[in-house]
């Protein structure tokens, strides 16, 4: 049992417990806080895989920006455990089914995955210079395409905002 494995287990337990907390807690604020904790645990996993860039970007984008906006909206709308509407049986049923389907997809993907990639051996692909090389040489077309997609989404958002 080396250090890496111990840290992995600790992070995994935190990530799973917090993820369960996101779903089960009645108060939306607590849900968001649990989600932030989950993101941190996942960033820790990235660090273990020697993907420092990914870990930090994960924290900046998800924990630092998106979750702040989530919190912002929930605080602004003053959602509490008391004001949470009772969901109908149908919605619950739909939720369980869609969640179950997602689980099947993830399991199938894991089953098909290359076991060599899951050996836990650290590689240098996550370092920023290597990542940049790969992104701007091998995957330049998908990268630029996704940037165009983001741009169009942004233009759309601005247009919707301009309407009122």
């Amino acid at each position: 049992m080396n250090w890496q494995l111990i840290i992995f287990w600790i992070l995994a337990v935190i990530a799973l417990l917090c993820a369960i907390g996101v779903v089960t807690s009645r108060n939306p604020i607590n849900s968001v806080l649990f989600l932030i904790m989950t993101f941190f645990a996942i960033a820790g996993h990235y660090l273990l895989l020697n993907a420092q860039f990914l870990a930090v970007v994960h924290i900046i984008v998800y924990a630092g920006a998106i979750m702040v906006l989530f919190l912002f909206v929930i605080m602004l709308m003053n959602m509490n455990a008391e004001t949470e509407p009772q969901k109908s049986q149908l919605v619950r049923f739909a939720g369980v089914i869609s969640g179950g389907i997602l689980l099947i997809v993830v399991l199938a993907a894991l089953k098909k995955a290359d076991p060599a990639l899951m050996s836990g051996k650290s590689s240098d692909i996550g370092l920023i210079s290597n990542l940049g090389q790969v992104l701007f040489h091998e995957f330049i077309v998908p990268f630029e395409l996704s940037s165009v997609l983001f741009l169009s989404a942004m233009v759309g958002a601005v247009l919707i905002g301009k309407k009122n």
Binding site: I36, Q52, I59, I60, L71, M75, I128
Partner: peptide, 25 residues
């Protein structure tokens, strides 16, 4: 001496707002 020093600072700074937001709420 991490090779993403600036991003680290950036990430931590962006977390600073949680202290304010959580305390405020």
């Amino acid at each position: 001496d991490v090779n993403i020093g600036i991003l680290f600072i950036f990430g931590v700074v962006s977390l600073g707002v949680y202290g304010i937001m959580i305390g405020a709420w």
